[in-house]
Structures are given as structure tokens and as C-alpha cells.
Amino acid sequence: MKKVLVACGGAVATSTVAAGKIKGLLKENNIEADVQQCRVSELASKADSADLIVTTAKVERDYGVPVIHGIAYISGMGIDKTNQEILDNLK
């Protein structure tokens, strides 16, 4: 099963909202994946086991895994595009 890490500063607020949206998106598209939240500071140690990172923070580091910016899930602007990026990455 694919694994998606959803990261923000504290793994409590914005990643919670984004992870909720992503879980809904994957369910609608019949994609089985393990969606986990974490802090950006934990990405380095957790990225190895992940297939995709979605983050609401500014992340410039290369974790060897695709990184998608998920601010759309918070601002509401550009959600369709972000959804598509995630689906394309997990197919």
C-alpha cells in the first residue's frame, strides 16, 4: 500500500485539515493508501518509507520523495489542481 505523509509545523492544525481532505479524495477515487500526519522536522526520518509528501509549509529540501504543496486545502484556492497532482502521483 502507498504511504502519504502530510506535514506541517506541529502536526496538529493545518496537516489535520489537509489529511482529512486527502483521505476523502483517495476514498472517492478508490485508491488505498496510508495517510499519516507528521511535523516537517520529522520528514527527514520518515520520508524513506513514504511514496509522497504533502505539506502546508515551505519545504525546499529534497527528501527523495515527491513533495506537493497542500496550501490549497487551507486557502480553498486551487484545490482541483492539487487533487489532480496527488492522484497523478499515486497512480
Binding site: 509549509a57 487551507i74 486557502s75
Partner: peptide, 9 residues
């Protein structure tokens, strides 16, 4: 400072 929270809505 580390994780800004402004949203351009």
C-alpha cells in the same frame, strides 16, 4: 517565523 500562516484568500 518558522511556519508562516498568512493566506491569500
Amino acid at each position: 517565523k518558522e511556519f508562516a500562516t498568512g493566506l491569500s484568500v
